[in-house]
Design a binder for these strands. Sequence first.
DNA 1: CGACAGTACATGCACACGCATCTAATGTCT
DNA 2: AGACATTAGATGCGTGTGCATGTACTGTCG
Lengths: 138, 138
Amino acid sequence: MCLHLMSVHATLVAVSDVAEQGLVQEWHELLARYSAVFTTLECRLQERHGIGANEFEALERLATCDFKCRSADLTGAIHLSQSATSRLVARLEKEGLVERALCELDRRGIFVTITDAGRERYLAAKRTHREVLNETLR
Amino acid sequence: MCLHLMSVHATLVAVSDVAEQGLVQEWHELLARYSAVFTTLECRLQERHGIGANEFEALERLATCDFKCRSADLTGAIHLSQSATSRLVARLEKEGLVERALCELDRRGIFVTITDAGRERYLAAKRTHREVLNETLR
DNA sequence: CGACAGTACATGCACACGCATCTAATGTCT
DNA sequence: AGACATTAGATGCGTGTGCATGTACTGTCG
């Protein structure tokens, strides 16, 4: 009776342990995968086009979605904090790849628009980006 | 004839575009997934146990693999540069969670071993860690 | 043995990040 | 209209990171 309960308990523990191990393994694979892709992207985009992986994501967003892109929208698209996005936009602006425009309806917000130079840089970097994804995702 | 070639070309472009879009989408999902898990881990591990997600990975590695854990082994296990690993170990040591021991055979290297306090901290944090994985991985 | 390349880890440096906070503008409630 | 909470974005600050380099040690070759 007591043994019976113990074995049930042991089985349950074993089952949850197995499930847990699977979860941990999944996380480690996710981490390794992410890490490999991101590092390679960062490296190759930087050396060929002078922009980081996050900068590229922002440019891509701006190049494809074009209108109604407020700073807050970018924060949602790329996975960064609001402050990091703000500085990211500042960097891109300093490089002349984007422009900040006041939003007349809500003068607290700003519109971020991509410049011609930004679009050009994006199109060039896009090839490298896809190339890296091809190499590193499976 | 010319039209025929053009349509073949157009089809090939379309096919490769579709494949490319799939790859991009896969990358965005990977990024979003990683970001959600890591951020939550970082946040909850920090507030409950005073360690970051990378610190936890290092402790887990040390707690389970125990012997022959050189600093370089850690660099391989967690996805950080050699210098970041060095500082990570320094932080853990300052908190009394690990110890650095000289390696007699090769006096350039060091062995990193987990302390009792470190193992205790790890076991406590492990629950939180698994909990977060359960919540955020699907 | 002595010089010289290679390896393991530490460290100076610049920089990107998140958190907390600030500023300016908007909405809301009386 | 005036006071107060809320929101968008900027910024000071502390910290973690990668790159380049430094330091100590090992291995090899003449």
